[in-house]
Design a binder for these strands. Sequence first.
DNA 1: CTATAAAAATGAACCCATTCAACTTTTTTG
DNA 2: CAAAAAAGTTGAATGGGTTCATTTTTATAG
Lengths: 208, 208
Amino acid sequence: MAKTGLRERQKAAREERILHAAVTLFRTEDYRSVRIEDLAEMAEVSVGTVYNYYRTKGDILIACVAMEVEEVLANGRQILSAPPHDVEQALLGLIFGYYDHSLEYLSKDMWRQALALSIEAPDTPYGRRYWDLDARLCGQVTDLIRLLQSRGEAQRDLDASALGQLLFNNLNMMFIEFVKTDAMTLQHLRDTVTIQTRPIARMIAGAT
Amino acid sequence: MAKTGLRERQKAAREERILHAAVTLFRTEDYRSVRIEDLAEMAEVSVGTVYNYYRTKGDILIACVAMEVEEVLANGRQILSAPPHDVEQALLGLIFGYYDHSLEYLSKDMWRQALALSIEAPDTPYGRRYWDLDARLCGQVTDLIRLLQSRGEAQRDLDASALGQLLFNNLNMMFIEFVKTDAMTLQHLRDTVTIQTRPIARMIAGAT
DNA sequence: CTATAAAAATGAACCCATTCAACTTTTTTG
DNA sequence: CAAAAAAGTTGAATGGGTTCATTTTTATAG
């Protein structure tokens, strides 16, 4: 159902301009120091109009994060369609896929603010939106373990859901550590998580 | 070095009153809806004086959290002084010690706000204070694994530090899930973490 | 092509955390 | 004990997110 009325087109264009301004400004300066007035100016609308499209400043940020995570999820589906046969390689491949895409559009500061918002107010629309994405990422890890089990490459008597969540919680917390520490590199994150994930991967594969 | 001057006594009394007001009000109402003015009124000082003792509203909250976590750490040291001989029981004993104390003085809302602040601004004094406590908790889990290893109750060829952090990251993330979800009970948290921790505990003990 | 209704945009006003220049109280000095 | 210095308290002013009554724009009806 294409919306061809003048009003619909203008609405879409305004929302687009606001989001574009947000991605640009939030990446350039700190989230905190970007004022709604600045976004409004760059998007050529008034302050009130910004609030017509996004409930709060946090909503705008979460919209930026959601764009990125949707891509990460799509990439995860790719990997899930034909994962490596080795448990460790499969798990780390998926995890590194998440990590490597994470700073494509977002800065560490944006991640920090988004994480903070989602924890501070999990029951608001933006909080729910964030945690929904989070749960879908976690689901991919669990799905990967199930797939490996069904292929006979992983122990079938292990609780895929519990282990998936354990591994996801670890990669997620390490990601928080990563965005929390400006000096920490992606390589260091990868190395640390590799060491942490390896013994679990061995166990899932069935220790030799 | 006892501070007996009038000024010192008054300072200590004021700081005490402010912190007491904070614990009381933050538990009663939401953190957000407590205004500095309210704290000042209850503590019988002015708004400006509150800022003389605490840099920001967040500092006051973190001071409340720190009181609680210091007790949790002390309890952890107790457990570490003579942990059970079974790996699973030892780990879960320590973890449940953390969980069971967590709501003694703090509400879920206070935890949410403190977590959010510490992620949002990890480089501020309160951010550092929070993450220091966090690291000490994580260290206890690692120390417990090392102790079990030295006693010959855990596999010595495993990386205690990596496994400690993995388990801590999981318990921490599950705690975030817990404070994020008002309806989630402590019992449910315990049960979930038990299922997640058990296979790792088995591995650490050396699977039979 | 008006006139009316519906939808959206606008920016001044509001609420709070935070700051800071002026004022009080306590301590020190002579 | 009085005066000067030091330390601390105070509340009005500032800044930025958010709200909402008013104005402007677009769609619909006659």
